[in-house]
Nucleic acid binder design. Structure first.
Length: 310
DNA sequence: CTCATAATAT
DNA sequence: AATATTATGA
């Protein structure tokens, strides 16, 4: 074939390996082009098949990772499935390369999200460039071996500690690093948001506009409130509490202060301060159960937080 | 210690 | 988004 010339060139393989490693070392820059990387590896796989020099390595691979025999020579799969099969082979290749310490692998877990600029917080949603093959246990602490002529980045490399043969590799080789840290401590709990009466007033107003606590959604509320720094989660939490309380005490008057707890929270984010407690207070004696459309949640203010503790 | 509340997890 | 659970402060 046309690639024969490549096969003959003794410098070709090292060069290709170097290319691969370089590619991987830059994986986080290519994170959005993972398809490109896959294509790259595909072509690499095909080339490897033709290179005699790799035959011994493949045999070694089979010895070390005897999980699959079918990939020998017969192409049992049809043309259509050939591609998928190839994909699997590539994963295997990656695995053995890992075990052979030829493969520079980026850190699966970062220390406090400093690495790639991605914060792996609980719901940061940050893009994670690497995936770990499922079933493969990685042991940290190894470093990339230095190979002459191959510019290996000094990135700590992960070592394959164990491989669960029962787990199928996913089509994509890389998985998000450590779905969750062993909850050492979620980077400290966020400072509590103080819901001052003014803030709550905005909250209640927003609720009114949105048609009641049962129909309003945290996001909408937040947008209506237009309070700088106020997050969806905070509104959500407050709404949850609010709903709970209006369920508990269907009617009562409101007293929304006693914000003694907000000590260091920045509450002056509220632009205007209006009287929070001038609501129409008409009790509805029969309002025992809050129905779905309980629009009057505001009307019947609640004294849920009028309690003098301590 | 208990309770209310806010943060976070499911 | 809705609930459930957990962490914290009073």
């Amino acid at each position: 074939m046309g690639e024969n010339s490549k096969d003959m060139d003794s410098t070709y393989i090292p060069k290709r390996v170097s290319d691969i490693l370089t590619k991987l070392s830059l994986i986080h820059d290519y994170s959005k082009k993972s398809s490109e990387l896959d294509f790259f590896l595909h072509s690499f796989e095909e080339e490897m098949r033709k290179v005699d020099a790799f035959k011994p390595i493949e045999r070694l691979q089979k010895e070390r990772l005897p999980w699959k025999e079918k990939g020998k020579g017969q192409k049992s799969d049809s043309e259509g499935d050939g591609r998928a099969k190839m994909s699997i082979d590539i994963n295997e290749k990656r695995n053995w390369m890992s075990s052979a310490q030829l493969w520079t692998t980026p850190r699966y877990q970062e220390e406090e999200g400093s690495g790639f600029g991605c914060n792996f917080r609980s719901r940061g949603g940050a893009f994670v460039p690497f995936k770990k093959p499922s079933g493969v246990t990685i042991k940290e602490g190894k470093r990339a071996v230095s190979v002459d002529g191959l510019a290996l980045s000094p990135v700590p490399v992960a070592e394959v500690e164990s491989i669960d043969l029962n787990v199928k590799n996913e089509s994509r080789c890389f998985v998000r690093p450590q779905p969750q840290q062993p909850h050492q401590q979620q980077q400290q709990r966020k400072q509590r948001r103080c819901w001052s009466p003014e803030l709550h007033k905005l909250f209640v107003d927003a609720l009114q506009i949105l048609g009641g606590a049962q129909t309003a959604t945290p996001k909408q509320i937040r947008e209506l409130m237009k309070v700088e720094g106020l997050t969806n989660d905070e509104v959500k939490s407050h709404l949850q509490k609010y709903r709970l309380h209006i369920r508990k005490l269907p009617s009562s008057s409101l007293s929304w202060y006693q914000q003694a707890q907000c000590g260091s929270v920045s509450n002056p984010t509220v632009a205007s301060s209006s009287s929070p407690q001038d609501h129409n207070m008409h009790l509805r004696g029969s309002a025992k159960r809050v129905s779905e459309e309980n629009e009057d949640d505001k009307s019947e203010s609640h004294s849920w937080k009028f309690q003098k503790r301590v």
